[in-house]
Design a binder for these strands. Sequence first.
DNA 1: TGAGCGGCTCCTTATATATCAGCTTCGG
DNA 2: CCGAAGCTGATATATAAGGAGCCGCTCA
Length: 179
Amino acid sequence: MVDIVNIVSSGSLDLEIDLESLSDEIGPIADYDPEKYPGMYLRFGADIPLITVYRTGKYIITGANSKEEAYTVRERFLNLLSDLGVIEHPDDDWFSIQNHVCTAEFDQSLNLNALTVELGLKQTEYEPEQFPGLIYRPNSDLGVVLVFATGRVVVTGCRSLQDAEDVFSDLKKTLSEFI
DNA sequence: TGAGCGGCTCCTTATATATCAGCTTCGG
DNA sequence: CCGAAGCTGATATATAAGGAGCCGCTCA
């Protein structure tokens, strides 16, 4: 069982945007400081995913806890642009989920030095002086796993929740004899 | 030799995870 | 005034995006 903690998605409006005037029109929920970063930040509320909009019309949505939330925020964004007359149809772009960050857990603490050997040195990186987690890159190439001595796990780099679930269940299967 | 261009790296954002150093704050 | 406790920011992972800066290469 893995839980989604963050989803990164991106899309394109396929049109050039004047971020300076758009941020003025949107008001305080927009934050644009080109000296600091070329993207304009747009956040509908404190616990609502962040939208970063670029001059080229491309945008990214970070911080969603589900695929549905990412799509809902995208829809709200497109409706806002439609209301402002920036775009004509609130659905004429492409949009896709790019990354799932998930957490999972083994019900026991783990010896990461032994785990490094068990998983194979070429797929594993563990340098506790640099970072306390073990970095495991499965052959499936569906994602990357961070394993901690507490038994907690972070699965990232997955295109879908199914990929993250597959990565974690494969890891559990691989370690079924070990733990 | 220098201009120009392509490629690369870093910045920023979200998010869980854990461990260190360095800093501030507080009590005795 | 000093030790302890708490807090912050670094470390690493993935991913999209545009811009700045840097490096090396090619051609005039």
